[in-house]
């Protein structure tokens, strides 16, 4: 039982973001969806957790069709999914410990002592031990991301979704976050889905990488297959070469072949 996205379509007004995206992620695997900013990667992730419903296609997580779930069903599913937000999305009126304990308070039978112990364990796991009484505004960007990760893993989810986990971080902190993602897979056995435009990070953490291009999965393969691929769009993205990436004349809003930004 894992994550299956089949021919997913989603439009916002006249703008069609997903045009039939398909991919599957097997149990225990960490997959990465890569693509430039604004291409629809976060939109895809929100479909997996039921924050968005597809216009067409199917999203199946752990054997359950997500778009068909009612609110109760979604809550049950979400207890099995941890979501790490791009900018952490920590509740700024709460301490870090309260943030991490939020999901635990929804689990029946968990008393205060058990929640506190689990919060401490999770903070230790992300190397934030002893910082539980601080507030999000008092943390650095990297610490906030780690706190967001601690909050996501606290209810012991089966799946972890990471939305741009390394965006805006320095290389050392990026590497530390990548290591944490690998620990989640290796030590906790969670199935991971990372959306990122950071290829270095994707090569480090992913068992399989899928390029989202023009609303569809353009290429899917292991890191080694991605590196060896001859597809110009994939090569253009991996190497950061806009001439190659936009060679087939594909256009994104405000961009044209050749990568110049008309919107600026």
């Amino acid at each position: 039982m894992s994550i299956y996205l089949t021919e997913v379509r989603k439009a916002f007004g006249p703008k069609e973001v997903l045009k039939g995206f398909s991919m599957s992620i097997e149990d225990g695997e960490t997959a990465a969806i890569v693509g430039p900013s604004g291409i629809g990667k976060s939109v895809l992730l929100k479909h997996v957790v039921g924050l968005l419903r597809p216009d067409a296609g199917s999203v199946v997580v752990d054997g359950v069709s997500v778009p068909e779930l009612d609110r109760k069903g979604l809550h049950r599913l979400r207890r099995r999914i941890g979501y790490v937000f791009q900018f952490a999305a920590l509740f700024d009126s709460m301490s870090i410990a309260e943030n991490v304990g939020m999901g635990l308070r929804r689990i029946p039978g968990w008393d205060r002592r058990r929640i506190e112990d689990r919060v401490e364990d999770c903070l230790s796991l992300v190397e934030l031990a002893g910082m539980g009484d601080r507030y999000p505004a008092e943390l650095s960007g990297g610490q906030r991301k780690r706190a967001g990760l601690a909050r996501a893993i606290a209810p012991e989810p089966k799946f972890l979704l990471y939305d741009e986990p390394t965006t805006g971080l320095d290389p050392v902190t990026t590497s530390a976050i990548d290591r944490l993602i690998l620990r989640m897979r290796d030590e906790l056995g969670v199935t991971g889905l990372v959306v990122t435009h950071d290829m270095t990070s994707a090569f480090r953490v992913a068992d399989r990488i899928t390029l989202l291009h023009d609303g569809r999965a353009r290429f899917s393969g292991t890191p080694a297959e991605v590196k060896a691929a001859s597809d110009p769009v994939l090569k253009g993205f991996v190497e950061g070469d806009p001439d190659l990436y936009y060679r087939d004349g594909w256009r994104r809003e405000g961009m044209h072949a050749g990568g110049q930004d008309h919107g600026a």
Partner: peptide
Amino acid sequence: TMRVTEQVDALETLAYD
């Protein structure tokens, strides 16, 4: 502010209404 910083989405993902 909670909406634009995705804190409302975070509530949903933590199984809160």
